[in-house]
Simulated scan of single mutants.
Amino acid sequence: MNVVLAVFVVVGFAATIEYFDLPLHARNVTQRGSDSLAVLRDDSLSDLEKEEALQRQARRLFGLLGILAGGSILALGAPLGIVWLLGRVGIGSFERTLSVLQRLDFLGGTILVGALAYLFIQRLRTS
């Protein structure tokens, strides 16, 4: 049962990340960082214009940080919280589920299945 709960945690984590589109937000952070660097390197802007542009970028970056941090906490916290609640009512064990999540064979299998699923989805999207 604990292996099933561990799989639930992994699938729940991945589904939440996909649902909130966190990879897109992470790419936006990278783009905003590049845009900020371009502002710093732009000799045609005055110092005041650079400061205003960087402050706008900083506000957007803080918003994205909130989305990424909150989404990450929710992505991990929700499935683990459900497993904890199930453990409290006698279905599985929270501690043993965490133990399964840390096993090298489980981690390796998760990486392999996740990579294959990613490749399969990418193939479907390009077809």
Rank of each mutant, 00 (worst) to 15 (best):
N2R: 02
V3G: 07
A6V: 00
F8S: 03
V9A: 00
V10S: 04
V11H: 02
G12I: 00
F13W: 00
A14R: 00
A14V: 02
A15L: 09
A15P: 11
I17Y: 09
I17R: 07
E18S: 09
E18Q: 09
E18F: 11
F20I: 11
F20L: 14
F20S: 12
L22R: 05
P23W: 02
P23H: 03
R27D: 13
N28G: 14
V29R: 11
T30I: 10
Q31W: 14
R32A: 14
R32C: 10
S34C: 15
D35K: 08
S36Q: 13
A38N: 09
A38M: 07
A38D: 09
L40E: 11
L40C: 08
D42A: 07
D42W: 07
D43H: 09
D43V: 11
S44H: 09
S44M: 11
L45F: 05
S46P: 05
L48W: 15
E49Y: 10
E51P: 10
E51L: 10
A53M: 14
A53S: 15
Q55G: 13
Q55C: 13
R56A: 15
R56L: 13
R56Q: 15
A58R: 11
R60P: 14
G63A: 12
L64M: 12
L64V: 12
L64H: 10
L64F: 13
L65P: 15
L65H: 11
G66A: 14
I67W: 12
L68A: 13
A69T: 15
A69M: 12
A69N: 14
G70F: 05
G71W: 02
S72A: 09
S72P: 07
I73Y: 05
L74S: 05
L74G: 05
L76F: 00
A78V: 07
A78F: 02
P79E: 01
L80S: 01
L80Q: 01
G81C: 06
G81S: 04
I82W: 02
V83F: 00
V83I: 00
W84G: 05
L85V: 10
L86H: 01
L86I: 03
G87V: 06
R88M: 08
R88F: 06
I91W: 02
S93Q: 00
S93L: 01
S93W: 00
S93Y: 00
E95G: 06
E95P: 03
R96Q: 07
R96M: 06
T97N: 00
T97C: 02
V100C: 03
V100R: 01
L101M: 04
Q102N: 10
Q102I: 06
Q102C: 08
R103E: 06
R103M: 08
R103F: 06
R103C: 05
D105Y: 01
D105V: 04
I111S: 06
I111W: 02
L112Q: 03
V113P: 02
G114Q: 04
G114T: 01
G114C: 03
A115K: 04
L116M: 04
L116Q: 03
L116K: 05
Y118R: 07
L119F: 08
Q122H: 09
R123V: 13
R125Y: 09
R125W: 11
R125T: 11
R125S: 14
S127N: 14
